[in-house]
Nucleic acid binder design. Structure first.
Lengths: 339, 339
DNA sequence: TTGTACGCGTTATCAA
DNA sequence: TTGATAACGCGTACAA
C-alpha cells in the first residue's frame, strides 16, 4: 500500500487538513508546524496521489494533443513547440493519435479524455459543425492549431499568401508552366489549408496573366511516396512543367526523387518548391515556404492556458505568416525546353 | 455539472451497481435490464469519468514514456512503434520529456506519474543504481528501451556487433585509416551504447591487424552540428581518415556537410557510415547500421503489458540485431591519398 | 491556526 | 441478478 496523506499527518502529529494546506502552499499555517510536516513528507518520500487530487480539484496538470502523429514531420515540429511550452508550465502532454475518421469522431464526440486533461490542442484536424458543437458543449478548453473553426481560438497560417509567394517567385524566375501538387485536407472551406493554397496559386497565376491549367494540378496524400507518384505523373506528360510547387516538403522530396529517377536535374531542368520548412528541407537544399511550426506550438499552449484561466474568453483568430526560403532546388526556367 | 452514474441509474430505474456492471461487461446482469441501462447511457450520452474510475480500480489505461524527445530522430521512430502498439491496446500515451539530468532524476525518484500511468517505458535513459532501486521499490512496471539494467526488462541493440560490422565493412572496402565519431551516453557500462560501439570498433580493427589511433576517435553530443564540428576536425588533420564511422545518422549528416564544405567528395574521397537507419538516411543515400526502431517500440509495449498482467515476471534481456545497409556514402579507399 | 467530516464518481463487497 | 454501502486519497468547508 502506498503512503497517503494520513501517514504524513500521523508522523507529523497533525491533521490531514494541515498537511494538505502545506502541500498547497496555503499560507495559514504556522511556520513551525509547516516544518514538521515538510520533514514528515521528506522522511516518507510522500508524493500526493495525482488521481485523488484530480478527483476533488479537477486539476490534472496535463493537456491532450490530438494529432495525426504519423503522417508528417510538420506535426513533430509543432509538438516540439508544445512540449517545450508545456514543460515550462510543469504540465504533462497526453498524445491522442488519430489515424482515421472514426477515431477522430470518437475523440471529438465522446471526449474520452474529459477530466484527464485540462484542455486540448487539436492539430490540423478542424472539427466539423457537429463535432465542434459537442466539444463546445463539453466545456473543454480547446485551441485549434493549423485549423480553423469560429467557435474556437484558432491558429492559422496564411496559406493563401504562402502559396501566392511560392508561385510568384517561380514566375519571377521565368517559369510559365508550373505544376502544383496539393495535399488533401478535410473540413471547413474557410482556412482550409489545401483550398487556400489553391487560391494562392490561382492568384499568382492570374496576376501574371497566366492561365490555370487543370492538368498541371493534382491533390494527393501527404506522404513522400505520394509525392513521388504525383511527380512522376507530371514529369511524364508530353509537355511537362518546368517548375513544381508542392504542398509539403515531404511530398516535395518525393518529387525530387521522381526527377532523379527520370534523370531530370534540379534546378537546371526542373525547379521544385516545397512547403513547411521541416529540418529535412534544409539538408536537401529544398527551397520552401517556411511555417513557424515550433512557435505555433508554444503559442497554442499559451493561448490554451489563457482559456483555462478564463473560460469565457472569446475565440481568437491568430494568423501566422510564412517566409520564403530560397535554396538550391529552384532556379531560372531552362532555356531549351525538352520536348 | 457533468452527468454521473447516478443519473443513468435513476433514468434506467436501477441501482448504480447495475450500471457499473453493464459498463464493465460483467455477465451477471439480465439482458432486459442491460438493454434499459444501455438505452439510458445512450440517451444521456454518458461516459464514465476516467479519473473516478482510476480512483478505485487503479486502471488508467495509459502508459508513460520517458524520453529525451528533442535530441534525435531515433526517438521519434521508437515512439511511432510505441504509439502504434498502444493504439491497438486502446491505451493512451503520456509523454515525459527529459531535457536534463535533474529532470530525469526527478522522474525516476519521485515517480510523479505514479498512478497516472499503468507502467512506464524508458527510452535510452538507463537509470543508475539509486534510481533503479527507487523505481523498483515503487512497484511501477517498467521496461527499458535501448538501455540496460538488470532489474528491468531491457531491450538492447547489439551495438558491439553493429559497430563491428560497420568498421569491418569499411576495412573490407580497403580503408586503413578509419575515423570514429561516437556519441555520449551515461549510465551503466554494460550495454552502454557508446561504450559498446567503441568495443565493436576495437574488435574490427584488431581482427584486421590495424592499430587503434586515439586521434581518430572522438565522442560528442548527438546533434547534426556536433557531427559537423567533429567531422571538420577529423578532416582537417594533416593525415585525415579515408572513412568515418559515426554513431548516429544525424551526426553523420553533419559529417556529410563538413565534407561538402571542404570540397571533399563522398564516397570518392571519403566514405561515411552512419548508425540508426532513420528515414533521412535513405533520402540522403547514407550507408548505415539499421536499428529496428519501430519494432523495439512495439515489443516494448507488449513486454510492458506482460509485466502489468504479471508483475512478478522476472526481468528479461531482449536483444535486437542491426543490419548493415549499403548506400552511396561508402566506397573503396581512394587510390591516391591527398597529403 | 488547526482538526474533522464530507464529497468527488467510480468499483467492489456483501446481503438480499 | 440486484441494490446499498464502503472504500479509494485528497481538498475544503466548518467548527473549534
Amino acid at each position: 500500500m502506498a503512503i497517503t496523506i494520513y501517514d504524513v499527518a500521523r508522523l507529523a502529529g497533525v491533521g490531514i487538513g494541515t498537511v494538505s494546506r502545506v502541500l498547497n502552499k496555503s499560507n495559514s499555517v504556522k511556520e513551525s508546524t509547516r516544518k514538521k510536516v515538510l520533514a514528515a513528507i521528506e522522511e516518507l518520500n510522500f508524493t500526493p496521489d495525482p488521481i485523488a487530487r484530480s478527483m476533488t480539484s479537477g486539476q490534472t496538470d496535463s493537456v491532450g494533443v490530438i494529432v495525426p502523429f504519423f503522417t508528417r514531420p510538420f506535426f513533430i515540429e509543432v509538438l516540439r513547440g508544445i512540449e517545450s511550452a508545456l514543460g515550462q508550465l510543469g504540465k504533462e502532454l497526453v498524445l491522442y493519435n488519430v489515424e482515421n475518421n472514426a477515431q477522430r469522431d470518437n475523440y471529438f464526440t465522446k471526449l474520452p479524455m474529459r477530466r484527464k486533461v485540462e484542455g486540448i490542442l487539436i492539430i490540423s484536424l478542424p472539427p466539423d459543425e457537429t463535432n465542434a458543437l459537442s466539444i463546445k458543449e463539453s466545456g473543454m478548453p480547446t485551441v485549434l492549431v493549423d485549423g480553423y473553426n469560429p467557435m474556437f481560438t484558432s491558429l492559422v497560417v496564411n496559406n493563401i499568401d504562402g502559396a501566392y509567394h511560392a508561385v510568384s517567385y517561380l514566375i519571377k524566375k521565368g517559369h510559365r508552366r508550373i505544376g502544383f501538387i496539393n495535399g488533401i485536407v478535410e473540413g471547413n472551406f474557410k482556412f482550409n489549408q489545401a483550398n487556400d493554397r489553391l487560391i494562392g496559386v490561382h492568384r499568382a497565376l492570374n496576376e501574371a496573366g497566366l492561365s490555370f491549367e487543370p492538368e498541371l494540378v493534382t491533390a494527393i496524400a501527404w506522404g513522400r511516396e505520394d509525392g513521388k507518384a504525383a511527380g512522376l505523373k507530371l514529369l511524364n506528360m508530353k509537355k511537362p512543367p518546368t517548375a513544381i510547387f508542392v504542398a509539403s516538403d515531404l511530398q516535395a522530396l518525393g518529387v525530387l526523387e521522381a526527377a532523379k529517377s527520370l534523370g531530370i536535374t534540379v534546378p537546371e531542368q526542373l525547379s521544385i518548391m516545397g512547403y513547411d520548412g521541416i529540418e529535412l528541407s534544409e539538408l536537401l537544399e529544398l527551397s520552401t515556404i517556411q511555417q513557424p511550426m515550433f512557435e505555433m506550438g508554444t503559442i497554442a499552449v499559451n493561448k490554451l492556458f489563457e482559456l483555462i484561466k478564463n473560460p469565457d474568453k472569446e475565440a481568437e483568430l491568430i494568423r501566422f505568416n510564412t517566409r520564403l526560403v530560397e535554396r538550391k532546388s529552384t532556379g531560372a526556367r531552362p532555356i531549351a525546353k525538352m520536348s
